[in-house]
Design a protein around this nucleic acid. Structure first.
Length: 700
DNA sequence: TATGCGTAGT
C-alpha cells in the first residue's frame, strides 16, 4: 500500500512540475516575466527543465544577468542548460560571454555549434563563424548549421560565398532558400531578389514577407502592397510588415485600417501601431492605444517614453518610466536621449550611472550626447571605460572632435579604430568640410571610394560643398556625374548642394538648371540660388528670385535675407537694403543675427553713412562680432573716419588680437590722418601681440 | 514542458 501511494504522489508531483514549467514558458512568450518569476519562486519542487525554462524566459526578455545568476546557482545542469545560456547571450548580443561558455563545455551538440556560429554571423563576423563551421564534425553538421552559415553570408551581402554553400548543400530546406532570399531583400537588391524568388522551388509565408519587407525598405510601397496582396496566407508578420511600410511613409490611415482589420493582434502589432503614431508625433492616439492594449512589454513602454521625448514632454516620460514595472536598459536609454536632447546632461548621466550593465546602445547614446554638446573629454573618458565598443562608439568620438574643430584628433581616432563604415567616412569628410579643410575633405572622399565604399547623400553633400568653397568646378562636375550614376540626382539635399556648388563656381546657369529639375524645392534650394546670384553680383536677379519665392508662398528664412541683403550691399542699394531689413524684422518676424548686421554695416559703410552704421552696431540686441566691427573699420578707413575707426579697432584688438589686418587698417587710417605717432604705436602693439602681417593678404 | 537556422515592433 505505502509504496503505491508514494508513487501516485510522485506522479502527481511530476505532472504539477510539468504543468508549471509549461506555464513559465508561456508567460515568458507574452513578456509576463514577473508572473513567471512568481510561479518559479513559489514552486515547491523544481527540475532541470524548470530552471532551463526560467533562464530562457529571462534571457529572451533582456534580463541576461538574472538568467546567468540562475544558471550559476542551479543544482544540476544538463547540456540544454548550457545551450540555453548561450542562446541567452546570443539574444543579448554578448558574443564573448557566449564563447566563454562554449569553450568551457565538455560536451557540445548540434545546437551548441549552431548557436555559436549564429553569434558570430549576427555580429557580421563571417570569418569566425566559418572557422567554427569548418571545425564542426560532419556528423553534427545538420541543416540548421548550414542555414546559419548561408544566412550569415547572405545578410552581409557576400552573395558569392552564400551561393557556393547553398549550391553545395544537399538537403536544402525552405529555410535555406529563404536565407538566400533574405540576403537580397535585406541589402535592397530587389531585382536580384525578385529573380531568386521566381526561381524558388517552394515558397512559404516567410518568402513572401521577405519580398514585402524588401520593397518597403526600397521605398517601393506599390510593389510591397502588390506582394502583400498576392501572399497566399498572410500571417501576423506579413501584416505588421505592411503596416510599418505604410507608417514609415507617413500613410498612417492605411496603417490603421490594416491594424483595425487584424483579427490576430499580438503585442508586436500593437507596438507597431503605437510606434506609427509616435513617429507622427500623435502622442495622444499612441497613449490611447497603449491604455487599450491587453498585454504590454518592455518595447511598449519604451515606445511611449520615446513618444513623450519626441514631443518634448520630459516630465511625462519620467512618469511613464517610473510606472514601468521592470525598467530595462532600452527604456532608460530612451529617457537618457530625452535629457540629452534638452541639454540636461547631468540628469542623463545620473540615470546612466544607475544602470548596472548599460548595453552598447546606451553607452553610445551617452557618448554621442557629450560629443554633440562639445564635451569631448567626457565623451572620451566614457569611451575608454566602455567594455565593448562598436563602430558607432568610435564614430561618435570622431563627430565630437570634428564638432570642436579638433580635426587632428578626429583623424587620429579614425586611424585608431578598426572596422570603419560609411558613417565613419562621412563624419570625417563632413568634419573637414565644416572646419574649412576642403582639400582634405575631397582627398578623404577619394580614399573612401578607393576603399570600396559607395558614397551616399551625406558624402556627396560634403564633397560638393567643398568644391563650392574651393571653386573646384572640374571636380564638382565629376561629382555631379557620379551623383547621377549613383541615383542621387533626385535627392533634395544633394540637388541643393549642386546648386550651391555651381553658383559659387560662377556657373549660375547650371545652378538654375539643377534648380528647375527638382521635384519639390524647399527654402534651402531658393536660398542657394539667391546667395548664388548675390555672390555673382547680380542684384536684379537676386531680388527677382526673392520675389518669385515669396509669390510662390515659400517663407523666407534668415539665410534668405543674408543673401538678399548682401546683394544690396555689394550693389550699394542702401534704401532697398534698409527696407528689406525692416521688412525682415517687422513682416517676417525674423530676429537679425550677426551676419545680417554685418551686411547692414557694410551697406551703410560703403555709402559713407558711418554714423548710421555705428548707431546700428550700438543698438543691436546681440554682441557685435569681429566681422561687424571689421566691416565698420574698413568703411572708416575708406572714408577716413578716425573717431569711429578707433572704436572699431579697439574692439577688434580684443576680439581678434592676433589678426594683423585689423592693425594694418587702423595704422593706414592713422597714416592718412597724419597721426604718425599713432601709426608707430599701432605697429608696436601689433608686434607685441604676435600678429604678423602676411604678405599679399587683403581684407577682402 | 527547456536550447539552434529564414520574416514583423523601441
Amino acid at each position: 500500500m505505502i509504496p503505491r501511494l508514494k508513487s501516485i504522489g510522485e506522479i502527481g508531483r511530476r505532472s504539477q512540475v510539468f504543468n508549471q514549467n509549461v506555464k513559465i514558458t508561456q508567460l515568458g512568450k507574452c513578456g509576463r516575466i514577473e508572473e513567471a518569476t512568481r510561479i518559479f519562486n513559489q514552486m515547491p519542487h523544481r527540475n532541470t527543465v524548470t530552471y532551463n525554462s526560467m533562464i530562457s524566459v529571462y534571457a529572451k526578455n533582456g534580463r541576461i544577468s538574472d538568467a546567468r545568476n540562475l544558471f550559476d546557482k542551479m543544482p544540476r545542469k544538463n547540456l540544454v542548460s548550457w545551450n540555453t545560456m548561450i542562446a541567452g547571450y546570443l539574444h543579448g548580443d554578448k558574443v564573448d560571454k557566449a564563447r566563454e561558455l562554449f569553450d568551457k563545455m565538455t560536451q557540445r551538440d548540434d545546437f551548441t555549434w549552431t548557436l555559436m556560429i549564429t553569434c558570430y554571423t549576427r555580429k557580421g563576423d563571417v570569418e569566425k563563424a566559418r572557422v567554427l563551421f569548418d571545425l564542426l564534425p560532419e556528423k553534427k553538421k545538420n541543416r540548421a548549421c548550414w542555414n546559419a552559415m548561408i544566412a550569415g553570408y547572405a545578410k552581409k551581402g557576400c552573395f558569392g560565398d552564400a551561393r557556393k554553400l547553398f549550391d553545395e548543400m544537399e538537403d536544402k530546406s525552405i529555410v535555406s532558400w529563404n536565407s538566400m532570399l533574405a540576403g537580397y531583400t535585406h541589402i535592397g537588391e530587389m531585382s536580384l531578389g525578385l529573380r531568386f524568388f521566381e526561381e524558388m522551388d517552394e515558397r512559404d509565408v516567410v518568402s513572401w514577407n521577405l519580398m514585402v519587407d524588401g520593397f518597403v525598405n526600397a521605398g517601393d510601397l506599390d510593389s510591397a502592397w502588390t506582394f502583400f496582396q498576392r501572399t497566399p496566407d498572410p500571417n501576423i508578420v506579413s501584416k505588421v510588415t505592411m503596416l510599418c511600410g505604410f507608417s514609415r511613409n507617413g500613410r498612417i490611415m492605411e496603417a490603421r485600417r490594416l491594424f483595425d482589420e487584424m483579427e490576430d493582434k499580438n503585442v508586436v502589432s500593437w507596438n507597431a501601431m503605437i510606434a506609427a503614431y509616435v513617429q507622427q508625433c500623435q502622442i495622444d492616439e499612441a497613449i490611447w492605444l497603449f491604455t487599450q492594449m491587453p498585454e504590454k512589454n518592455a518595447v511598449s513602454w519604451t515606445t511611449i517614453i520615446n513618444g513623450y521625448v519626441r514631443v518634448g514632454k520630459l516630465h511625462e516620460a519620467e512618469q511613464v518610466l517610473n510606472k514601468m514595472p521592470y525598467k530595462n536598459v532600452g527604456a532608460q536609454t530612451a529617457m537618457i536621449s530625452g535629457y540629452i536632447q534638452n541639454r540636461r546632461m547631468d540628469e542623463a548621466r545620473r540615470i546612466f550611472e544607475k544602470i548596472g550593465t548599460p548595453d552598447v546602445v546606451c553607452w553610445n547614446t551617452m557618448i554621442a550626447g557629450y560629443a554633440h554638446c562639445g564635451r569631448v573629454d567626457e565623451a572620451l573618458s566614457l569611451l575608454k571605460r566602455m567594455p565593448q565598443k562598436n563602430v558607432a562608439s568610435w564614430n561618435n568620438m570622431i563627430f565630437g572632435y570634428a564638432q570642436t574643430g579638433q580635426m587632428d584628433k578626429a583623424v587620429a581616432v579614425f586611424e585608431e579604430m578598426g572596422e570603419k563604415n560609411l558613417v565613419s567616412w562621412n563624419t570625417l569628410i563632413s568634419g573637414f568640410t565644416q572646419n574649412g579643410l576642403f582639400t582634405n575633405a575631397l582627398t578623404t572622399f577619394l580614399l573612401m571610394v578607393q576603399d570600396g565604399k559607395k558614397p551616399d547623400q551625406s558624402t556627396f553633400v560634403s564633397g560638393l560643398c567643398s568644391c563650392a568653397n574651393l571653386a573646384a568646378l572640374e571636380i564638382g562636375n565629376q561629382l555631379h556625374q557620379t551623383v547621377v550614376k549613383s541615383g542621387y540626382a533626385n535627392d533634395l539635399f544633394v540637388s541643393n548642394a549642386l546648386i550651391s556648388m555651381y553658383a559659387k563656381c560662377g556657373r549660375i546657369l547650371s545652378a538654375e538648371y539643377v534648380f528647375k529639375y527638382i521635384d519639390s524645392v524647399d527654402v534651402i534650394s531658393w536660398n542657394s540660388l539667391i546667395s548664388g546670384y548675390a555672390s555673382n553680383g547680380n542684384v536684379e536677379k537676386t531680388v527677382k528670385i526673392f520675389q518669385e519665392m515669396t509669390v510662390k508662398g515659400v517663407k523666407p528664412d534668415e539665410v534668405t535675407f543674408i543673401g538678399v541683403l548682401s546683394a544690396c550691399s555689394h550693389s550699394g542699394l542702401v534704401d532697398d537694403g534698409l527696407n528689406l531689413f525692416r521688412s525682415m524684422t517687422e513682416d517676417h518676424l525674423i530676429e537679425p543675427v550677426a551676419e545680417h548686421y554685418a551686411c547692414m554695416v557694410c551697406l551703410l559703410g560703403r555709402a559713407g553713412r558711418l554714423e548710421e552704421a555705428f548707431q546700428m552696431v550700438r543698438e543691436m540686441k546681440i554682441e557685435p562680432t569681429a566681422g561687424i566691427w571689421g566691416a565698420l573699420l574698413y568703411a572708416c578707413r575708406v572714408y577716413g573716419n578716425l573717431e569711429i575707426g578707433r572704436v572699431a579697432a579697439e574692439k577688434l584688438s580684443k576680439l581678434e588680437p592676433h589678426k594683423s589686418s585689423n592693425y594694418v587698417l587702423l595704422s593706414n587710417l592713422n597714416a592718412e590722418a597724419g597721426r604718425w605717432d599713432e601709426v608707430e604705436s599701432t605697429r608696436i602693439l601689433m608686434t607685441d601681440r604676435g600678429a604678423e602681417k602676411q604678405p599679399g593678404w587683403s581684407w577682402i
